[in-house]
Design a binder for these strands. Sequence first.
DNA 1: TATGGGTTATAATTTAAATTAATAAGTATC
DNA 2: GATACTTATTAATTTAAATTATAACCCATA
Lengths: 297, 297
Amino acid sequence: MKLRDLQYFCSLYKTGTFTELAKSFKVEQPTVTLAIKRLENELGETLVLRNRSKGIIEVTQVGEILYHHAQNILHEENLASTEIKHFNKGIRFGLPPIIGNLYFPLVAKKIAEDGLMANLELDETGSNQLYQDLMAGKIDIALLGSSLPIRNKKLTTNFLSSGEFVIISSKKHWLAKQNTVSFEDLKQEPFVTLNGKFIHDHVLNLYSQRVNFSPKIIFETQSIETLKNLVAQDVGIALLVKDAILPTDNLAVNYLQSPLPEKFNVSIATRKDYIRDNLEKKFIEDLEVLKNKIHQA
Amino acid sequence: MKLRDLQYFCSLYKTGTFTELAKSFKVEQPTVTLAIKRLENELGETLVLRNRSKGIIEVTQVGEILYHHAQNILHEENLASTEIKHFNKGIRFGLPPIIGNLYFPLVAKKIAEDGLMANLELDETGSNQLYQDLMAGKIDIALLGSSLPIRNKKLTTNFLSSGEFVIISSKKHWLAKQNTVSFEDLKQEPFVTLNGKFIHDHVLNLYSQRVNFSPKIIFETQSIETLKNLVAQDVGIALLVKDAILPTDNLAVNYLQSPLPEKFNVSIATRKDYIRDNLEKKFIEDLEVLKNKIHQA
DNA sequence: TATGGGTTATAATTTAAATTAATAAGTATC
DNA sequence: GATACTTATTAATTTAAATTATAACCCATA
C-alpha cells in the first residue's frame, strides 16, 4: 500500500471523478486511474464502480472500509509531520479567554522568568474549539475548562482545580441581604451572561432546566469585567465562578442551595502519547503550580 | 513519506542496527540506510544517532515522535487489510466461555435458522483477551462481559443485560434457611470459584475487600456445571450470576445485602466505525434479541 | 599505531515502478 | 449517430528505488 495512493483514493471519494482528482493533484488522469487500480489489485476487491460518462457511480462497501482507515492513516501522518516540525520550536498553547483572565496571570510571572513567554504561540478560543485544535494537531498543549472532569481516552489530562459557581448581584439587590439562594427563586430575575463561552452558558441552562424555566437574559458579553460592572450597576444578576470575584468588586455573592455537580474544572490537556520537548516540559511544570495557587487567590 | 520506509524505521527502532534490519527484510544494507535518510531529509531532522562500530547509539526525541505515529499508521494499515480481507467472508466472533454457556444458546437456534452458524469463526477466551483481539483486528464482533458498563471510545457497544450476583450453597447448608446474606457473615465459609474468568473473580475480590478479608478458596474450576455440582455437594459456597442457576439445580440462593454496583454486564462490541457486512448485520440483529430473552430464561 | 572485525555511507549500475502522451473505448444526451 | 463527457489501455519516457562493490568509519587489541 502506498500513502500517495491512499491520498488519491480519499480525494476520489470526495471529488467523484478521476479527471477532477487528477487536475487537483496536477497529474495526468492515467496516473490516478492506475493508482486506484494498484490499491484494488493489492486488496483483491473493487473499491469504486465507474461509469465512463459520469465518473464514479458508487463507492463499494469495501471502498468505505478503506476510506475510513485511509483517513485515519493520513491524519496520523499529518500529525507526525506537524509535531516534528514544531518540536523544540515553540509552545503551541491553547488558552480559553476566561481561564486566561482568571488563572493564567497567577503563573505568568514564573513563565516569563523561565524565558518561555517568547516561545508561546497562543490559541485563544473556547474550550470546545481548543479540543478540536488539539486533536487536529494545531496546538499541543491546552488549558481546558469543563463542567465535569474530563474523561477522554485520546487526551492526557492533569486536573488543576474545580471552581464553584455562585450567583452575583449588586449590593442594592434584595439578594445582598442573604448568603445562599435557591435557583428557583430567580425565575423573575434578569440575567447577564458570558456569551459563547460554553461552560457558563451550559451550567446556567442546567440549573434552569432543573427548575423548568428559561432565564430572562437581558445582556450577553464576552468580558468578565463588563459582566461584573453590569451586575454592580444592578442591570441584572449573573452566574459566575467564584474565583472571578475580587474583594474590591463591590458585588454581593450568593451560594446556590443544593448545587449541581457541574463545576468550573480546569485541566492541562495534551494529546495522548504526545512527546514533550524540553521547553514544553518546563512550561507544563509552571502551569501545574496553578494547582496550589488557584484557591489562594 | 512512504509506508515501506516507516516499516523499516519501526524495525530499526527494535533491532538497533541497519545490518540486522536489512537481513530481516531480505534486502541489502544500503537500501535501508537510504530509506531512513529519505525520512530524515523529508522531515529535516535526525531520527537516530549512528555508531559505525556498534550500530545505533540512540533514537532521538524526534525519532521517538515518529516511531509512535508510525506504529499507529502501520496498525491502521494492517487493520484496513484484514477487515477488507474478511469482509463478506465470515463472522469473526469472540465469545467468552461463561456467556457462551449461559446466554448464547438462547439465540443459537435463530442464528442457525438464518444460516449463519457455518460462517462463525469463533474465538473463545476471556473478555479481557477478546478486547485485545478486537483492537488487534483478530476478531470483529464480540460479546463482552464486564463488571461495570463499558465506557470505551474505541468501541461501539450495545448493552444487552445486567445480571445480578448471588451466593449459592447446598440445600443442607445453614444459608439455605435464609434468603439474603451479608458478605461479612461469610468469613469462615470455604468458597468454590470460577477461575481465570475475570469478572467473577474480580467481583468476589471486591466484596472481600469491602469487609476486609480474603475468602478461603478451596477449589477453582472453569466449568459452571462443575461449580454448581461442587456447591450442591456442600464442598463450599460460591458467588455466581443468578442467570446461571436453573430451578432443577438443587441449590439454595441468597441475595447479597447492600450489593455492590458491579454486575455481570453483557454487551455486543465492535471496533468504533467498523463497517458491518450483510452477514454481520443479520448476526448482530440476532444477538440483540438477547436483550429481551435473557431475564425470561 | 597498525590491523581486523564490526559497522554505516557513497557512487555507479541495474532494476523496477510511476508518469506521461496519445489514443481508444465506453456511456449518456440530444 | 454525432457530441461531449467520462475512464481504460498502451508504449515510451521519466523517475525512483534496490543492488553491487567499495569506501569510510569506529573501536578494541595486538
